[in-house]
């Protein structure tokens, strides 16, 4: 049993809130459900760096979304690179 809830294939929901300062969670991808594709290294959260707040490196993920889930229309996918802090794994029904 793995204890890390973040792994390729896991469905995640992105943070929905609109922060006051800098963020790298694009507005169009907020509050959306996507799938983790792969980890793209570990980096300090850009939001914290922009505020001059110390930040430890954390996993950054390629998260793939269906366009229809983001925009209501479209048959393409959009893969966005997101810090783990932006993401909450979705509990799958047992």
């Amino acid at each position: 049993m793995g204890t890390d809830p973040f792994a390729p294939g896991v469905r995640v929901r992105t943070r929905a809130t609109d922060p006051a300062g800098h963020t790298r969670l694009p507005r169009y991808a907020r509050g959306a459900v996507g799938v983790l594709v792969e980890q793209a290294g570990r980096h300090p959260l850009a939001d914290d760096r922009a505020r001059g707040v110390p930040a430890d490196p954390q996993p950054v993920w390629h998260v793939r979304f269906a366009a229809a889930d983001l925009f209501g229309v479209g048959d393409h996918t959009v893969t966005v690179e997101l810090w783990q802090d932006y993401l909450t794994p979705i509990e799958e029904a047992p």
Binding site: H43, V60, H62, H76, T77, T79, V80, E81
Partner: peptide, 12 residues
Amino acid sequence: TSVAVWDASAES
């Protein structure tokens, strides 16, 4: 042909 868009929103 499906289309995959990649948004360079972080470090890659």
